[in-house]
Design a protein around this nucleic acid. Structure first.
Lengths: 217, 217
DNA sequence: TTGAAACATGAACCACTATTCAACTTAGAA
DNA sequence: TTCTAAGTTGAATAGTGGTTCATGTTTCAA
């Protein structure tokens, strides 16, 4: 991001990915338009999915002309890809900022899930866009989950060091936890909100704390 | 399925869903052609995904004329939907038949995961088709996971009764377990097979058995 | 103030592919 | 064997929507 002009107008939201050269806006007006397109696209993709979404729909939502889209993006795919990378970063940021205060490693995981669930509820379109990336932009999808798992694995590692957690935890444990979180997010964040995030997080945490086995005799 | 003619020719694989009237084959030749189309479609959708897949590609793989497709299916969507429902049933059947012999509820869950992982490895296209249903045929997708979760919940219930499991398990626990399984299946079944199914299943089972907390002091 | 670079506009273009259909072939019951 | 329903065929149709581009407008540094 070498362009120093009007840096203030860069969306804090959408500035973290590498963009194709020559399509960067250079004036305040340009940044504003690009931002409108990005926001509109998130809505359009979130509501309709990649294939049902149309550039026309996006530009209409954004209140710009059809052609303006191509002033800032090379193609529909490129836009989607940019969006996925950005959403991935936002999920990461949000979860990270929710895990600042915790007593032990288990509590930290509980906070992570709760944050994820609330984020999913507030941004259902993000959930859908990342999920659809499995088919539209597989590379980004893979990166998203690999990186997420890596962050979880790191936390587990730290928990092992402090003694909060077992010391034989590995990548697969991280994937298992991530899977729990994602599916609970889908069921109780996206599909329905019939159970408080706190409660869902408590249930998942219960599994991590002691498993589901019956009391030993 | 009221048609009694040539019932022998019905694919055991693809006969479990309700089909649109008037498109059923009535002769041996017809059943054979429909079967070829279904198999070809599973491959085509599995490889390319719904939107990249084409009817032309499907009929070419099947070795039939383009028009023959519409002798048996109303549309591309209808075919996909039929496929999803069938694959869902196959996953269910496969998992069920793998859980016949077990000592306790936890072992049963381990068998379920191992069966699922092996199934995913052998039928990667099924995994992808069901996953893509989230966007192409949301109803079927929802049903698939709701029903899967319901079966898990039932097993948990039984485990509670026998005392193998805690007695406060509910739907959310089933979803958590399902999420674990699905993500482990994705990571160690579809993306890579670098870890034996047995080992992955053991890890997940370890979580269910005792959680991931460190030894109490 | 001014002129060149940015940006905006939307009609037209174009490639792609799901679906239709009318002519033709095959199966199998009577 | 015969005749009709079932099945096959692939060229033609039709609708869609991503992308281009020539033209007009706005911005802002000099």
């Amino acid at each position: 991001m070498e362009n120093a002009v009007s840096r203030d107008f860069m969306a804090t939201k959408y500035s973290d990915h590498v963009e194709s050269k020559d399509k960067q806006p250079r004036t305040a007006r340009g940044f504003k338009t690009k931002r409108k397109l990005l926001d509109a696209a998130a809505l359009e993709f979130g509501e309709k999915g990649f294939h049902e979404a149309s550039i026309t729909g996006i530009t209409q939502r954004a209140g710009t002309a059809l052609g303006s889209f191509y002033t800032y993006f090379d193609s529909k795919d490129e836009l989607f890809s940019a969006l996925v990378k950005d959403m991935s970063a936002r999920v990461k940021t949000h979860a990270g900022s929710a895990m600042t205060e915790w007593e032990d490693a288990l509590e930290r995981e509980k906070l992570a899930l709760k944050a994820f669930m609330n984020f999913a509820r507030e941004h259902k379109e993000i959930y859908r866009i990342i999920d659809e990336a499995e088919f539209v932009d597989p590379e980004s999808y893979r990166s998203h989950y690999q990186e997420t798992a890596a962050r979880i694995a790191e936390r587990l590692q730290e928990g092992s060091v402090t003694g909060d957690l077992r010391d034989d935890l590995e990548e697969a444990h991280a994937w298992a936890i991530m899977g729990m979180n994602v599916f609970l997010g889908l069921r109780y964040g996206i599909w329905s909100e019939d159970k408080p995030a706190e409660e869902v997080a408590a249930i998942a945490n219960g599994i991590l704390a002691q498993g589901i086995a019956g009391p030993k005799i």
